[in-house]
Design a protein around this nucleic acid. Structure first.
Length: 957
RNA sequence: GCUGGAGUAGCCAAGCCUGGUCAAAGGCGACAGACUCAAGAUCUGUUCGUGUAGGCGUUCGCCGGUUCGAAUCCGGUCUCCAGCACCA
């Protein structure tokens, strides 16, 4: 037997390929199409990623064995900036990254080559296919492999967007995105591909509040528009020179930096002059919404780089405002220097506006005291602000001081108040980055308004309804997600579908300056696997794959002759492709990780519903959770990850596959633990040994109870497997096959079973049941047993039902043995002899009468008693009868009667007598079996009368 | 906060929808024994408490309810996890 699995894996993989099991061609069988959400190309993957992929292969293999023609294509998703980032890090010699790549087996010459993003994508495509998926024995149709950067894929993608446009689902409206003032759009993300600083910055939406002051407006930027009812003054930084901006007919005052930012977002904006901050101190201006006149006070915390450099003051809820206001009030020097009047100072009295859990009337004051903050400028104010904002957002409710907004939750009030002020012209929105971002070229990155941004309108009511309705007909696992997905679909709004800048992807068909964004180009793609093969083999070229081509092969539009003329693709080939699309589609199952629940799966469904007819909409979704690592031990970014080929080498592919399938429900995270994988490896070793031993047991014995038992058990397990797999429950399948059936095989041998036919039949069931999850080992065992053909192409026969009587017989024997050992243990006696008395016949008669009444639902004490007493043979047993009747009726009406029905089919005495020798050997004490009806039996304590059917009496001495 | 999910014996993890056969599958670990020159090997038994006859008692986050009967159904409560968008 092979102990190093590598050779064996290789051998069978070659064999499957030689038999063409990996090639999927339409034929007369029912079809089953399964995909996993293709991975993004972002470097080497780790052992955790293989979990979901393995599920897909195992499900596909199972389906094949139930007579389906299975298409399981794979691909990669290289859109976005993942590959660009990685190539860039290699190019600039990022040591951590280089080390990581090398540890995964990347050679120096390769490293040099993959500094180019496209070369990098091609390289990893090979790695994923050869080192991961093929290595794991996947029966995927490799001819159909596709990558989102392939030119033919791009043609498909462009067609998809034309169809979305035809369905009026593409809309254009303004959008705010980060852009370098020189280079244009950039990606702001932690990998900092495009930028040299500020990768963690987020785009924030500020509300600009307009404070009228005679003929100018002081513009404050706030993230908390819901606090306007608490405004009592206004802050300027006296040491900053502000800009006067001509905005339409109005004159705005903002910081000079803000003026520049505004010009990227607002039309008709022009700097017309400057004004010193200190000159504005002491002004009176009218606050928006509350229309109250408030004074302008000086404050150093107003940063010209943040927002507009001007701040509205809500001391009740903003720690900065509270502390600065106290300082203005307490410091006579300030009053004097800026000529502030006593009325102005006295008018600024904090107003309590929000009630929050864990805070009093003035949350800002509370947090300042709690954190021991004593003066403005204290670093702790940053945290204080964050904390009070967060708590306010989650737990806050608007108080009665907030007019018609009283009683609203902060979360809701925020939107409503902002909108009302925008509608009345007292406010506008403004986008800014949360921290400074600098482009690779050294220029600042700002938020720029783009007027012609394209969106897919997932908010469309008709589309949402169609998609949501379709979901009800789908098989979605886990069921909780099936319930939840409607909420997710409703929650979707318009989604930006294209972007500009340094990103890989397909050009937007209506405007080539745009690249189709990464989520949007991975929604309808499973259908492309039915076509990709023809592009890969160069039977069709990307140029030929125009709108009418896809219209025809996917939607059946147009006459084949005309399409053929237009595309220069032969009529026959067009027909073949069209037939293939129709044969394979709809997709039967899309499998993806839990992170896809809120983005990929909904858009996958939306796009199908938007473009394809009812009978081509997907039929199933399955979500899998993750393999996690303690302290991210398996995460590639942290290093220390186990490379997949290394793990395959160390544990064997099948051990890993079994580990994924069985270690937990697919719908739970699992912590990666090599020791646990090793235990699965050991189990497989044991199974191999056991199967080999069974196969060599060829003594033809006469068929006995235990043979019937084993065949019945196997049949029952097989039917459990089929039942479980209706909901793709691989764990249950693994449990039946690798644990339950294994244990039964052991028991069979222990009981002395050795019948050739029984062993052959049960081995066939057992080994075939292992083929989906551990295909290599199943194949090896199949071969050892000399079964016909390959295990992988074996088709499960119609399952026979188990024999409840035969199965119950063994349960009875185990129960008897367990009872005997228990008695011996409890009594601590030095037992020499065990006698087992089976029940008297008359009791069996009462039980069968009772069961008959129970199955027609008419079982009760009086009727059964009456029936028994009218039987002379029972009546003679006197008051033992009603006692037994009472017991039976109570038991039978309150517990399941399956076992009792099974018992009816069994001759208890004969069955136990046949097992007497076995019982003797198990307990190490001579055991004898008698029927309580036998005359002249040894029964010193008169135990035999205690026996009831299914519960023999036991006497030990 | 919103949406969804979870809390089961030393650990992992089934069961819960469809209440009773549930002291609760299976695995791991631990303990004991068998076989061995040896083995991260294999096999057997035990693994909540208690008990000189197969029993009894307590247990499935916590509190309460429905029921002849609840790990399972209902209400409440505490704790933990995930997602919350342009990021793949």
């Amino acid at each position: 037997m092979v102990r190093g699995y590598g050779e064996m894996e290789d051998k069978w993989q070659k064999e499957w390929a030689a038999k063409g099991l990996d090639k999927a061609e339409p034929d007369g069988r029912p079809k089953f199409m399964i995909v996993f959400a293709y991975p993004g190309v972002s470097g080497y993957l780790h052992v955790g990623h293989m979990r979901g992929y393995t599920y897909a292969d195992a499900i596909g293999r199972y389906k094949r064995m139930t007579g389906h023609n299975v298409l399981f294509p794979v691909g990669t998703h290289a859109t976005g900036n993942g590959a660009v980032t990685l190539a860039h890090r290699i190019a600039k010699n990022d040591t951590g990254m280089i080390e990581y790549l090398k540890r995964n087996g990347c050679s120096d010459s390769k490293l040099d080559e993959i500094k180019d993003p496209l070369a990098l994508v091609n390289f990893f495509n090979e790695v994923y296919v050869n080192d991961y998926w093929k290595r794991f024995g996947f029966l995927s149709d490799w001819r159909r492999f596709t990558c989102t950067l392939y030119p033919d894929y791009a043609k498909f993608m462009q067609w998809q967007f034309m169809k979305l446009n035809d369905a009026s689902l593409l809309i254009q409206k303004p959008y705010f995105m980060p852009a370098c003032t020189e280079c244009g759009p950039v990606a702001v993300d932690p990998s900092e591909t495009d930028i040299s600083k500020g990768g963690n910055a987020e785009t924030q939406e500020y509300t600009l509040l307009k404070f009228r002051c005679n003929d100018v407006f002081l513009i404050a930027a706030t993230l908390r528009p819901e606090t306007v009812y608490g405004q009592v003054n206004f802050w300027v930084n006296p040491d900053v020179e502000y800009a006067k901006v001509r905005k339409g007919n109005e004159t705005w005052i903002v910081s000079q930096a803000a003026a520049k930012k505004l010009s990227y977002q607002k039309d008709d904006c022009k700097i017309i002059g400057t004004i010193k901050g200190k000159d504005m101190v002491g002004w009176m201006c009218e606050a928006p919404m509350i229309h109250r006149t408030v004074p302008v006070f000086p404050a150093a915390f107003c940063d010209p780089a943040v927002g507009t450099g001007l701040v509205t003051s809500v001391p009740s809820d903003a720690p900065d405002d509270w502390i600065s206001l106290q300082e203005v009030k307490d410091d006579p020097n300030i009053t004097k220097r800026y000529n502030l009047t006593k009325d102005q100072i006295d008018s600024a009295v904090p107003i309590s506006i929000i009630s929050m859990e864990g805070y009093g009337n003035f949350p800002a004051k509370d947090i300042i005291e709690r954190m021991n903050i004593e003066r403005s400028g204290d670093e702790k104010l940053i945290d204080a602000k964050k904390q009070v904002y967060k708590d306010g957002y989650h737990t806050g409710k608007m108080k009665d001081t907030c007019g018609k907004f009283a009683g609203l939750r902060v979360e809701d009030a925020k939107e409503k108040m902002k909108q009302e002020m925008i509608d009345s012209g007292e406010a506008e929105t403004f986008h800014d980055l949360s921290e400074e971002v600098v482009c690779r070229c050294g220029c600042p990155v700002m938020i720029k308004r783009v007027d012609d941004q394209w969106f897919i309108n997932y908010a469309d009511e008709e589309l949402t309804k169609r998609t949501s309705d379709h979901c009800k007909t789908m098989q979605i696992e886990p069921p909780e997600y099936k319930n939840n997905i409607h909420g997710v679909l409703n929650w979707f709004r318009e989604r930006a579908c294209v972007r500009q800048g340094n990103w890989l992807g397909t050009k937007f068909p209506y405007d080539e300056k745009w690249t189709i964004e990464a989520i949007s180009d991975s929604t309808l793609y499973p259908i492309y696997y039915t076509i990709s093969m023809y592009a890969n083999s160069k039977q069709i070229s990307p140029e030929q794959m125009n709108e009418s081509f896809f219209d025809h092969v996917i939607l059946g539009k147009g006459k084949v002759d005309e399409i053929s003329k237009k595309t220069k693709i032969s009529k026959e080939l067009l027909q073949k492709i069209r037939e293939e699309v129709q044969y394979w589609y709809p997709l039967d199952l899309n499998l993806g990780g839990k992170d896809h629940m809120t983005v990929h799966f909904p858009t996958f469904l939306f796009n199908h519903a938007a473009i394809l007819p009812d009978d081509r909409l997907p039929k199933g979704i399955m979500v899998n959770w993750y393999i996690t690592g303690k302290k991210s031990k398996i995460s590639k970014s942290k290093g220390g990850a186990q490379p997949i080929p290394g793990a395959a080498e160390k544990f064997g592919v099948d051990a890993l596959r079994l580990y994924y399938a069985h270690v937990a429900s697919p719908f739970a995270d699992v912590e990666w633990d090599e020791d646990i994988v090793m235990t699965y490896r050991q189990r497989l070793d044991r199974i191999i040994t056991m199967a080999g031993e069974l196969n060599s047991l060829t003594d033809a014995e006469k068929v006995s109870d235990i043979d019937k038992w084993l065949l019945s058990r196997c049949a029952t397990h097989m039917s459990e497997i089929h039942k479980a797999m209706k909901s793709y429950d691989l764990r249950q399948m693994a449990s039946e096959s690798y644990f339950e059936m294994f244990n039964d095989m052991k028991w069979y041998v222990r009981r002395g079973g050795a019948d050739y036919d029984t062993i052959r039949d049960s081995l066939k069931m057992w080994i075939s049941s292992m083929s989906p999850i551990t295909p290599h080992i199943a194949e090896e065992l199949w071969n050892i047993c000399n079964f016909d053909g390959l295990a992988a192409e074996y088709v499960f026969p119609e399952t026979e039902k188990g024999d409840a009587g035969a199965e119950f017989g063994e349960t009875l024997i185990r129960d008897v043995i367990s009872d005997i050992s228990q008695i011996i243990k409890v009594t601590k006696m030095d037992a020499k002899r065990v006698i087992i008395y089976t029940s008297q016949e008359w009791k069996k008669k009462v039980m069968s009468m009772a069961l008959e009444m129970a199955s027609s639902g008419k079982l009760d004490i009086p009727s059964l008693t009456k029936a028994c007493m009218s039987d002379a043979s029972l009546r003679e047993h006197g008051k033992a009868v009603p006692e037994l009747v009472k017991k039976f009726v109570t038991d039978m009406t309150r517990t399941s009667n399956d076992g009792r029905f099974a018992l009816q089919k069994l001759n208890e005495t004969e069955h136990l007598a046949a097992a007497a020798q076995f019982i003797t050997s198990e307990i190490g004490i001579k055991a004898e079996v008698f029927s309580a009806d036998d005359k002249g039996i040894y029964d010193p304590q008169n135990k035999s009368k205690m026996a009831i059917p299914g519960r023999p009496a036991i006497y030990i001495e």
